[in-house]
Amino acid sequence: MLSKVANFSFRMASASVLSRLNQRAKQAESMITDLKQQIAILRQNAAITISNPEEERLRVENQKLRSDVEELKSQLILTEIRNGVKQIPLPTNRTVAKAEPPKKEPTNQPEIKQAPAAANNKDQKPEKSNKKEKKVKQSAADGEPKAKKGKNEPKTEEKMDVSRLDFRVGKIIDVKKHPDADTLYVEEVDMGEGRNRTVVSGLVNHVPLEQMQNKVAVFMCNLKPAKMRGILSEAMIMCASTPEKVEILNIPPGAAIGDKVTCKAYPGAPDVQLQPKKKVWETLAPDLKVNKEKVATFRGDPLVIEGKGALTAPSLKDVQIK
């Protein structure tokens, strides 16, 4: 009897132990599953933490590359304009397709044939020969030599100096960024002409917008107007320039809107408008420089406003003027 009770107690104890072991096994499996999920989340967060700085770095580099490309585009456009290359605006999504011309409907009118004019030839008199032609033929028959116009005339060399460039003082009364170019400003400039000129300049990456507003500067006014990304530019602001830095030239104290800039060593009246085919600006531009004293010069002689002083650069020395 005692052995049966002992066996029963042993079986009950074994069942209880097995039950607890099964329960702990399930808990262990649940804990393992939770740990795996937490490990996966930690790995994902670690990957994001590592990749975020790299993405930010790439984003900054891409933005800089875009800015560099836009600046190169604007420099290319300015160079093409100075060389007389016509600018054609790029099409945009706002471009409206032109309607097709209406088709001509066929008409049922009979064709009218023109009557031959041979019948009227009898009534027509032969045209009289030109008296001048007769004189030329007669002189040739008499042995007189024919004179060629301008054959022996000496050729005069075209003057090529800074006096042909129309530099004037103007004030920027309004400025904004070009709607279709990130590196270009569009300025409205008062030059004392009774109307404002529109000027497009590639200075966005060099001069802040607030410094452009109400700026008094020197502009070249006799370049042929040309479109830059769809906007007609009627002058060019003059700057001391390097690939890394660009500065608008300073005018002397007391200079007024409309004052002309000249070079005493090269007197003369400027062209009304430079002809791109003659390459006047392209020929003279290399001789426009800022010297070691920061004075704007042409072939070493200063550019001045009569009675008021010379043009200067804010800080650049020994650089080109563009």
Score class of each variant (00 low, 15 high):
residue 2 L to C: 02
residue 2 L to I: 01
residue 11 R to M: 03
residue 12 M to W: 07
residue 13 A to P: 06
residue 16 S to E: 01
residue 21 L to D: 01
residue 23 Q to G: 09
residue 36 K to F: 09
residue 42 L to E: 01
residue 42 L to F: 03
residue 43 R to A: 11
residue 45 N to Q: 04
residue 46 A to W: 04
residue 58 L to T: 06
residue 60 V to M: 09
residue 61 E to A: 03
residue 62 N to V: 00
residue 64 K to I: 05
residue 65 L to W: 13
residue 66 R to T: 00
residue 73 K to M: 13
residue 75 Q to S: 11
residue 76 L to Q: 01
residue 82 R to E: 11
residue 83 N to F: 12
residue 84 G to Q: 13
residue 88 I to T: 04
residue 89 P to L: 04
residue 90 L to G: 00
residue 91 P to R: 15
residue 92 T to H: 05
residue 94 R to A: 10
residue 97 A to T: 07
residue 98 K to A: 07
residue 99 A to T: 15
residue 99 A to I: 15
residue 100 E to C: 10
residue 100 E to A: 08
residue 101 P to V: 13
residue 107 T to C: 02
residue 108 N to D: 08
residue 109 Q to F: 02
residue 112 I to D: 05
residue 112 I to G: 03
residue 114 Q to G: 02
residue 121 N to D: 11
residue 123 D to A: 15
residue 123 D to Q: 14
residue 125 K to P: 00
residue 125 K to E: 09
residue 129 S to G: 13
residue 131 K to M: 12
residue 131 K to N: 05
residue 135 K to I: 15
residue 135 K to E: 12
residue 139 S to M: 06
residue 139 S to C: 09
residue 140 A to E: 11
residue 141 A to K: 09
residue 142 D to P: 10
residue 144 E to A: 08
residue 144 E to C: 08
residue 146 K to G: 07
residue 149 K to I: 15
residue 150 G to A: 07
residue 156 T to F: 04
residue 158 E to C: 06
residue 158 E to Q: 10
residue 158 E to V: 14
residue 159 K to V: 07
residue 159 K to M: 05
residue 161 D to T: 00
residue 168 R to G: 09
residue 172 I to A: 09
residue 175 V to R: 00
residue 177 K to R: 09
residue 178 H to N: 10
residue 183 T to Y: 14
residue 187 E to G: 03
residue 192 G to K: 15
residue 192 G to L: 13
residue 193 E to P: 12
residue 194 G to W: 01
residue 199 V to L: 11
residue 202 G to H: 05
residue 202 G to E: 13
residue 203 L to W: 03
residue 203 L to Y: 04
residue 205 N to L: 01
residue 211 Q to P: 13
residue 214 N to P: 06
residue 215 K to M: 15
residue 217 A to G: 06
residue 222 N to M: 12
residue 227 K to V: 02
residue 228 M to Y: 04
residue 229 R to F: 12
residue 229 R to I: 11
residue 242 T to G: 15
residue 245 K to T: 01
residue 245 K to S: 10
residue 246 V to F: 08
residue 250 N to G: 07
residue 250 N to M: 13
residue 260 K to P: 12
residue 261 V to N: 02
residue 265 A to V: 04
residue 270 P to G: 14
residue 271 D to Q: 05
residue 273 Q to C: 11
residue 274 L to W: 02
residue 275 Q to W: 00
residue 278 K to C: 09
residue 281 W to V: 11
residue 282 E to V: 03
residue 286 P to E: 08
residue 291 N to G: 12
residue 292 K to L: 10
residue 292 K to S: 14
residue 293 E to R: 03
residue 293 E to Y: 08
residue 298 F to C: 03
residue 299 R to E: 14
residue 300 G to Q: 05
residue 308 K to A: 02
residue 309 G to W: 11
residue 309 G to I: 12
residue 319 V to K: 12
residue 320 Q to T: 00
residue 321 I to F: 15
